[in-house]
Structure formats: structure tokens, C-alpha cells
Simulated scan of single mutants.
Amino acid sequence: MQEQKGKDKSLQHDDLGIKMRSNANPFVPADLQKKVLQPIRLSSYFIVLIESGSITYNLESQDYALTDGHLLFAMPNQILTPPAKPDNLKYFKLLFDENTLALLPQQFPFLVNSLNAPTIILESPAKERVIKVFEILNQVLYQDKYGTDTEIILAYLNSLLSELNSAYFRNREPANILNANLSKFIEFKLVVETSLTEQPSINSIAEKLALSTNSLYRIVKEYTGTSPKDYFINRLITEAQRKLRYSNISIKELAYELGFNDPDYFSRLFKKSTGKSASEFLTRQDLSGE
């Protein structure tokens, strides 16, 4: 599995961690596409909009068929397998990191709503507006020879995410964009990601977030449907599955790598969480793309 590379200075505006590609500005030439069609662990938020044509992406081992007006989004640390691009496909791709997201004046619950499908179907005229914003972002990022103020780029990114957030929740329960609980949940997720293998206690995480354990439980339950402990365990097991599928590592080595002192305990936890033994994940398909 490939790790997504660090910031590419040729693809971003000043110090913003934002990249964009389209038919007019592809990531790689068509003749090299097959060489990079390998699973990627995302280090940024990823959004792809299909203007016309059809394509299927694989996100977290699940296929998502996209066609006109369909949009797929993914979050950092998720596994994305890029597909070969059909000749008749018209698309826009956007990547931006947590630091760029933090510069925006509001929050976007759809980016962290992991309980629902990571897809949006845009109807006209929303589709037309979103395409226009993608086109403008592409222009200010790569075609404006005089340069564009960072604030303008952020304003268009904010406008785009506002459209997508509205479309995502249009047929779902309404969300309070400025909900303080959402901010704490995002902080919780960041703590989990940055201290995953250290396996901190839930009490220590709550203290770090200036919350009581009861408040942390209520917030995490609100956004994930599980307790903080179960969320952490599920994240560890997901990481274990990824490593077993995409890297050559023994179960014992994996247990130590994930912060478990007792490999047998890790194996029992894996079996309890997934219903399968860790050894079943060692026999995996060839993901080289060849």
C-alpha cells in the first residue's frame, strides 16, 4: 500500500495544503495511470465530483459507482483505491488537509459523519453551482499568473463545502454547523489518530479535551453511536485489518506495533471485534494493480 506523499510545492498555493485536478489538469498522464492504481492511505480530505461519465472508486474495501452529478468524499487515514480513468470521464478532484480546514470560518459535519454513506448526489442547479466553484478553484490555484490571495481561495473552498454540507443533510436529520459538541468530537478524533499506538486511557483523553468522562461519552455517542472506548478499539482493529491486508507483517509483530504488550490478548480482541481470527487476514489478494 502506498502512503500519500507529503505536500507537493508545485501543486499548492503558497502554504495551503490544498490540491486540485481535473481533465485539463490531471494528476498523471493516461499512460502512467495503471502504475499508480494502488491502495492509498489518505493524509488529506479527498473529494471527487463526476461531471459526466461513470467510474467506480473503492473506499475502505467498498465499491462506490459514480456517474453524472455524483460526488464521493473521504477522510484522512481512510484507504482509497484509485480506479483507471475512462476516456469519456469529466471530473474534478480536490484534496485539502486538516490545517486548511481549520482556517475556514465554519465547520462541516458531513466530513465527520462516518455513519452515513460518503456520497452525495447533486441535483441541478446545485450541480451547476458546485461545478462553477470547482472551475474557479482550479483557475485561482493553477492558472492565475498574477497569483490570488489566500483569503479568496479559502472563501471559495468554504463556499464549496457549504454547498456539499447542505446537499448531504438535505434528506437527513438537520445538523447544527456551529455545534460546540462537534468541535470536541473532531478534537477527540485527532487525539485518537495521533496517539493510537500509545493506547491512552479514556480518562486521560477526557482530561486532555477538558471534558468529564461522562461528557466525552455523550459527545462520542452522539456522532458515532458508540462509546469512546469502543470507538478507540474499533479504530485499532481497523488499523490492524489494514496492515494485515496491505503489508507483510506477522500477527505478533502487529500486536506490538499497535501498542499491545500481549499478542494473545490482541488476537482475542481481534476475533471478538471482527468475528474472524487475525490469521484469516494474512491470506490476501494481490493489490499491486498488475
Rank of each mutant, 00 (worst) to 15 (best):
Q2D: 05
Q2T: 04
Q12K: 06
I18F: 02
K19C: 08
K19M: 13
A24L: 13
P26Y: 06
V28M: 05
P29Q: 09
D31A: 13
V36A: 09
I40F: 00
F46G: 04
I47Y: 01
V48Y: 05
L49T: 03
S54D: 06
I55V: 15
T56L: 05
Y57C: 02
L72D: 03
A74L: 01
N77S: 15
Q78N: 09
T81N: 03
A84T: 10
D87P: 02
E98K: 12
N99A: 14
L103H: 06
P105R: 07
L111Y: 01
S114G: 10
N116Y: 15
A117C: 08
I121M: 05
K132C: 10
I136E: 13
L137N: 04
Y142I: 00
Y142Q: 03
L154T: 04
Y156G: 01
L161I: 00
N165F: 03
P174W: 11
P174M: 12
N179I: 03
N179M: 07
F185T: 03
E187Y: 12
V191R: 11
V191H: 13
E193R: 14
T194I: 07
N203H: 14
E207C: 09
L211R: 11
V220I: 12
T226P: 02
P228K: 09
N234F: 05
E239F: 04
A240K: 02
S247N: 10
I251N: 09
E253M: 10
A255T: 00
A255F: 05
L258S: 10
G259M: 12
F260E: 01
R268V: 12
K272I: 10
